[in-house]
Design a protein around this nucleic acid. Structure first.
Lengths: 341, 341
DNA sequence: CTGTTAGCGCTTTCAG
DNA sequence: CTGAAAGCGCTAACAG
């Protein structure tokens, strides 16, 4: 007997049945480990097992999917895989999928609604059992339709009003409020925001305002800067410039709506006079280890991506298994990373 | 006539044929836009088109894949999607795939050979047309076998000796030599390396040595520090500690084998006496915008991920289309990012 | 305990 | 120009 089965001509169930003289059903039972359940004769098992051990067998998922109308795959649609936040989220989903034998199909949209629609349709045409998406626009009704009912889907990160999807997001409002409050302890922060139209950013803005109000201040609007363009370092540079112009000087305390915006803002600040004033207070959503190397005090609001992914995944698998998952928005608490001494 | 076709009961070709009274073949010709080629009667086209416009049709990729034995999907196997380098690479592959109608199936291995084997087998069982992998061990022969020949596969980032795969990597040796030479201009750099067993890292070490030799120095080994553990910030901290111990003081010039190692090394340095000496020369493979905010001089060796991905993708699609792709290692030049003033 | 049958939706001959 | 038939590999009844 040779060592490893030669997968280059691994057999189909049909072929194994023909070669061993048993029927497809019998072969399938022993291959699928249901031999006990159907009390297949020991000799039969042995014969089939021996044949398989020599020639090899690998389940053809494509054929199986066609028959069962489910594929053990799920689709993930995100704006941009190169964005660290979505990359981490994707990694979590990939791991969760792998753990239960699912495969992840990924697609990115670059924040383009047309690409988003296309990606969803493509994924559905490929028979995914479920969809996870971080939508760039409110998901239209009918987007998830396929023969025999909608494909189960959940949204993450962006809770568009009226989206008829179970949705899991971080607690943006609370985290923004906490971050703002922390910065208010030593000054008056400006908030530099890209994409204020996104629900997550809108919530952060609301939290910012709430913290100002809670501190008895009514000047939140004067410290709020918005850039409608995409989340990017370029937007951050523009926003820092706007804040500097508005107040006649660079802010001595500021927070950004994302890490990319922060990068741009810091670059603008550093470019101004060859360095970032060491006492400028910095607030950030998301975090990067390199931030800890700045001399500046940094407050970081961090989402619990693992919990977000796990929750969204749990809701999706429940829906796939036929459970009725309410289309509510679940809010996962984050934490304010203590300012590093 | 209603607006959008109701995809919730979009029809199969069979159903459309039955409903319109034409045959499957005819229906398929007009749906696939081959009506001209087969000179289908205008009335026939109109009837079928009208029916489809009302009831909708979406190609079932699963059925198609079963029949054609190709799926218009490719598999990507990487060590870790949360690693920024692989995330960028994945994003590039995703984009390239989308551009030619392919879908990307992703799997990560966490540098675990068993998971790598499993992921490859799973992907093949799902009928991917090709595989891209950043292997964590030399790819064993027979890994890509399926009925009817091996699945076309290419490797990226890691050129294991003797891997029988077309491989595309960055020019690690040259980039390391350039980086080392740049640092040698003002001092003697230490090189902190995690995973020296990986081919890419081994090449960087070779480049480091070569630059020392080219500068007429024979003490490269004294400045080379290796940690066998995984690529991580923790390894970076250990390596910085080792370098400090070995030389009696923290290095005034050093380079790291990866961004993660650099993060750890910088953290260790900063933790030592509350800050990184502003004149410490830093060299890094890969880059992050936040690095530019340090007061220190930073030399960054950057791979051309886009070109790496594009080349690997081109080789793979060629192989899928039946071309004979030589199993050579292609080396994509990188660039040394000029030290920011 | 084992075998037979039908069919998932598509594509590809081969006949008209 | 249009139709009929076969089959990809698997699973799910249903008979024995």
């Amino acid at each position: 007997v040779n060592s490893a089965p030669d997968r280059s001509r691994s057999k189909t169930i049909e072929e194994i049945a023909a070669a061993t003289g048993f029927s497809r059903t019998t072969v399938r039972f022993v291959i699928n480990g249901q031999a006990d359940r159907y009390r297949i004769a020991a000799a039969t098992r042995a014969a089939i097992a021996a044949y398989v051990a020599e020639h090899g067998y690998t389940l053809d998922h494509v054929a199986r999917s066609l028959k069962l109308r489910r594929s053990a795959t799920i689709g993930l649609v995100v704006p941009d895989l190169a964005n660290a936040y979505f990359a981490r989220l994707t990694a979590e989903f990939e791991e969760l999928s792998r753990a239960c034998g699912l495969m992840l199909l990924t697609a990115s949209t670059r924040e383009d609604p047309a690409r988003e629609r296309q990606a969803i349709a493509n994924l559905i045409a490929r028979g995914v059992d479920g969809l996870i998406l971080a939508p760039c626009v409110p998901p239209a009704a009918g987007l998830f339709a396929r023969r025999g009912g909608d494909v189960p889907a959940v949204a993450v990160d962006r809770a568009f009003a009226g989206a008829a999807l179970p949705t899991v997001v971080g607690d943006n409002a609370a985290m923004a409020a906490a971050l703002t409050a922390a910065l208010l302890a030593t000054g008056v922060p400006s908030f530099l925001c890209a994409r204020p139209d996104l629900p997550s950013i809108a919530d952060r803005i609301a939290g910012f305002r709430a913290a100002f109000a809670a501190a008895g201040r009514d000047d939140a609007e004067l410290h709020l800067f918005r850039d409608p363009a995409e989340d990017s370092a370029a937007a951050g540079r523009r926003l820092m410039l706007a804040a500097t112009t508005a107040h006649g000087a660079p802010p001595s305390s500021f927070m950004c709506s994302s890490l990319l915006v922060l990068e741009g803002a810091l670059a603008a600040l550093a470019g101004r006079d060859g360095g970032i004033p060491a006492d400028t207070m910095i607030g950030t959503f998301d975090h990067h280890p390199l931030l800890d190397l700045l001399p500046n005090p940094v407050h970081a609001a961090r989402q619990d991506e693992r919990a977000i992914a796990a929750t969204a995944f749990a809701r999706l698998t429940a829906a796939i298994d036929g459970a009725a998952v309410p289309t509510v928005v679940e809010i996962i608490p984050g934490r304010l990373q203590p300012q590093r001494g």
